[in-house]
Design a protein around this nucleic acid. Sequence first.
DNA 1: GATTCATCCTTAAACGTTTACGATACTTCT
DNA 2: AGAAGTATCGTAAACGTTTAAGGATGAATC
Lengths: 332, 332
Amino acid sequence: MTPTIKDIAARAGISYATVSRALNEKYGVSRETREKVKALAEEMGYRPNAIAQGLVNRTTMTVGLIIPDITNPFYPRLALGIEDRLLKAGYNVFLCNTSWNPDRERDYLNNLVQKQVDGIIISSIAHHADDIESIIPSDMPLVYVSSYPEDTERSYVLIDNIKGADMAVSHLLFRKRRRIAFIGSQQEYHSLEDRLSGYRKALKRAGIEVSEDMVVLDKFQEQSGYKIIRELLEKGTIPDGVFAENDIIAMGVVQGVQDSGYRVPEDVAVIGFDDIPIASHPDIQLSTIHQPKYRIGSYAAEILLNQLIQDPSERRTERMTLQPELIVRRSS
Amino acid sequence: MTPTIKDIAARAGISYATVSRALNEKYGVSRETREKVKALAEEMGYRPNAIAQGLVNRTTMTVGLIIPDITNPFYPRLALGIEDRLLKAGYNVFLCNTSWNPDRERDYLNNLVQKQVDGIIISSIAHHADDIESIIPSDMPLVYVSSYPEDTERSYVLIDNIKGADMAVSHLLFRKRRRIAFIGSQQEYHSLEDRLSGYRKALKRAGIEVSEDMVVLDKFQEQSGYKIIRELLEKGTIPDGVFAENDIIAMGVVQGVQDSGYRVPEDVAVIGFDDIPIASHPDIQLSTIHQPKYRIGSYAAEILLNQLIQDPSERRTERMTLQPELIVRRSS
DNA sequence: GATTCATCCTTAAACGTTTACGATACTTCT
DNA sequence: AGAAGTATCGTAAACGTTTAAGGATGAATC
């Protein structure tokens, strides 16, 4: 249907190998035929078959991006940073949304190696490096972004979650809160754990004992914050501050607090994490820890690109930990 | 590196053609060798090279999805509906974000055909069908979603934009508004035009003349609503109702109205389009026209899948126009 | 006039699969 | 026993491209 180099060769009266070299600017073809070939290619609407090229070149100019939740505004911006950077370098990206499903993450990884992607960027929900790295060839470039399994040797780009959480909780402490809850989702996500340990760290430093019924994790994301805080309040466990795993959950918490007849921030101060766009809306004004989402994405892409051009033997792992930023708004 | 069927064949002491047939459950291989081959494949960690398969099968189990703005919460949900449906059928998706850039849309289309995708779903910003359909092979399945060029013969899935806009404006009229503005972005987007004509239609039916300074389009998306309404108000052009192209813009309008010292909805009633999740937030309460985003996506995927299994000759164009739903909230 | 050399092109193999066809051996039938 | 059929496997071509190696041509050198 669409013309191949053989079609061009036939019309030009030369062999298709010459056509290939002409189009790829290789040596050994005269200016004359090169121009003739190019004109013909243009005229016939020739477009190289990337699949065939991929087979012989052993590179597909394609990378896989695995994220847990495209519905959380954090990830689209991250993905945008990645896509923009990779596109500039000529790569396309397979976007894979796992919806927090570890099986789906595994399946997608398998899929991506079968599809011969050149590299993978992943915001993983797996706990162990092996869950991921045993699936992919050991020489396949991989960079973790925003979350990673702690026993990995690979590159990653992420915010300092411990420090960010520490800052958030310290801020609540500064606001004279003493009964500070941590509310999150039950997903096995390494950044969750770091945020949790940052939470513990800050409380410990302040000499406050962490009461375990103040740490509540729930199965789902979207409605988690709302549900959890309402249950807490009804049970009579009344925190005066809440640090939520992320802004989506934090917004649920704020709603829940208000619907239970309490005031934010007077009765319960709330702070989230991520600084998604809506958090700064005048009618929302959610305090949070800022993450430079787009930048994190483009850094991750940059690191992957470095690995892509390097010899596997001399690949170094590059790790970036970006500094979080406290954003104080009305909710605290 | 990773084993191929030849490696398996060598270890099994048979030809690689037989290995292929064994793994693909084809006739002509004994139970015995089939099982031996499968065991070996499992043991050696064999995974078929999808690129090589793609070359011979002339199908890549891959589809391209082109959207203008992953940053607008409308699209991730649309994409999710598409991805979920396609994944179930074994397809992977290239997500392509054009950032409202027509050149980038064109480049991506080219890219996708070179990458030999089996089909394309696109929320296009192009005006003419030719801008898109001249790029792709005529037998390549394509379905438009949420927006489409009006001179196309292809399938599409979208909301009835004219009717939705009509409903929105009629609602404002019902609220006794007479000076109703339309605020949108300047992107060439067909759904924009339909919404604009729905706006005109409703006004006309009510016997209200459309004043052209009440229709304002701006270049960008995110800040458009805010900027435009503030300029309008400062110019002394004070609408008592605003229909915005989408919820993102509508939210900007609400902010702008309030920052200019007017009240929503008392002085200016505002209604948007899409019903993105945040619109229902208790502190936002934006009136809007609901779109079933996830469902639109999965319908589009369904239609594409139908085309993928059909013979190109007997492909019928399927067009779905979903009914919009008016959601009245505090902003009107 | 033979040799060398550069230039331009062709041949052929390779990438990892699938699949039509042919070959072989074994069964079954007459 | 010979013919015919069946089950199993191998050979080879094909998908569209890149690229190493080699061949042809003509010009330059001696």
